[in-house]
């Protein structure tokens, strides 16, 4: 899969869910790409690097989201 295609799939799928959810587990993303985790990771790393996705963490668990989405980003003025 091309990076661009993977990116499109992820962005589209996450936008669709934005009404109910702004943070996603890694395996939600590998599920969207329909890939094994280790393979999906290469694409997802790149998307973070390119600023298409951003990390969120509770400290113990990490999640991914589209930058600036979710209520917390606004609340902390970090968006």
């Amino acid at each position: 899969m091309e990076q661009a295609e993977a990116q499109e799939k992820i962005v589209e799928a996450l936008k669709l869910k934005l009404k109910t959810k702004s943070k996603f587990y890694f395996n939600d993303l590998s599920g969207i790409l329909d890939m094994k985790p280790r393979e999906a990771k290469k694409y997802i790393n790149k998307m973070v690097e390119d600023g298409i996705l951003e990390y969120w963490s509770s400290g113990s668990t990490s999640m991914y989201g589209l930058p600036g989405t979710g209520k917390q980003a606004g609340a902390e003025n970090e968006d």
Partner: peptide
């Protein structure tokens, strides 16, 4: 304390 946020 609120839970979580910026990660790195």
């Amino acid at each position: 304390w609120k839970h979580g946020g910026i990660v790195g």
